[in-house]
């Protein structure tokens, strides 16, 4: 691994003015609508959690690069900001500050810098941080404040309530208003609730070509198809596809977290395989698992398989003959 100086990417290598910085700041912009919705529902708490998370992530990265690795610092490339924002979006809005800091240390320190920093991490840092917190602080991480518009005075005495998936996991079928779920008026993590805001950001990322359609479509399509089969078998026991897509972190995961360039496959075909895997595992965990939400676990599991998928779905070499000679195939 010592000579890992060459960038591995699909040919042809065309130069463009894309840079890590530009991509990262596009992601930040794309996350802003969802952030605005969470400020609307959770008020100052949303701003507090997001700021702490971003500052902590940047600070940890700076400290490690400056004092432990004694190299140049690259905190301005925006990747720590994105990790911090995604981490904040994945936790309840009433989380204590020190838990967020621990999450940032794990996300940047363990999941990213240990492996050699941006570009070398096999797992999505924000999700590693989130899963670490979920397992370490189960009660704090599963006490969700109910969303209340900011001008509502009740918001002050933090009322907590269940998430739709939490109820489903306990065996209760709930009639949720799909319009509420679409806007984001339901219990959940800070930035995962509002489908419309997340979709808006996703469209922006697609137009900016920061992400391709493969992963989100594969993840959401698989989740819809799989849950539709279950729903068809027994609608009283299993939730319908629309519920599964709107509830929990499905959209946030599919659009922003699974598509992380470093931890997802390189080719379109690989991305489809990867997305289908995430979709299946998510529904499996949601339906039969002990945790109500499986998105983070699914992404981590598929992250681990990315090298295998990359190996399997090798990109065609630029200028290669479509059908290689038979001897090579046999080998």
């Amino acid at each position: 691994m010592a000579d890992n100086r060459l960038a591995i990417a699909m040919s042809p290598h065309v130069h463009s003015n894309e840079s890590v910085k530009k991509i990262m700041y596009s992601v930040v912009i794309a996350l802003l609508p969802a952030f605005c919705v969470s400020v609307y529902f959770f008020g100052l708490n949303a701003i507090r959690v997001t700021l702490i998370s971003i500052v902590a992530c940047m600070a940890v990265e700076w400290l490690i690069q400056k004092f432990l690795l004694k190299g140049k610092t690259t905190i301005c490339d925006g990747s720590a900001i994105v990790t911090g924002m995604l981490l904040a979006f994945n936790v309840p809005a009433n989380l204590d500050w020190w838990i967020i800091v621990i999450g940032a240390i794990v996300a940047i320190g363990i999941a990213k810098m240990t492996f050699g920093g941006l570009g070398n991490n096999p797992f999505n840092p924000a999700i590693v941080g989130r899963v670490f917190l979920l397992i370490s602080f189960p009660s704090q991480m599963t006490t969700w404040p109910t969303p209340e518009p900011i001008w509502d005075i009740k918001a002050l005495d933090a009322v907590t309530g269940p998430t739709p998936l939490g109820l489903l996991n306990e065996g209760q079928m709930v009639d949720y208003n799909y319009m509420d779920m679409f806007i984001g008026n339901m219990g959940g993590s800070l930035g995962e609730m509002s489908a419309i805001a997340l979709l808006l950001g996703g469209i922006f990322l697609l137009i900016r070509k920061v992400i391709t359609w493969h992963i989100p479509v594969a993840v959401l399509g698989t989740m819809a198809a799989f849950s539709a089969i279950l729903w068809g078998v027994d609608p009283t026991k299993y939730a319908d596809p629309l519920f599964h897509i709107l509830a929990g972190g499905a959209l946030l995961g599919a659009i922003y977290m699974a598509t992380d360039m470093v931890t997802s496959p390189m080719t379109g075909k690989g991305m489809l395989v990867y997305g289908v895997g995430i979709g299946i595992i998510t529904i499996l965990i949601r339906t039969w698992g002990s945790y109500p939400e499986g998105m983070s676990f699914a992404i981590l599991i598929m992250n681990a398989l990315v090298p295998l998928i990359n190996n399997w779905c090798k990109p065609k070499r630029f200028g290669e003959v479509v059908k290689p000679p038979k001897e090579e195939v046999k080998k």
Partner: peptide, 10 residues
């Protein structure tokens, strides 16, 4: 309660 992960296998 501490950071529970450290008591568990991971």
């Amino acid at each position: 309660d501490g950071i529970l992960v450290f008591v568990l296998a991971p």
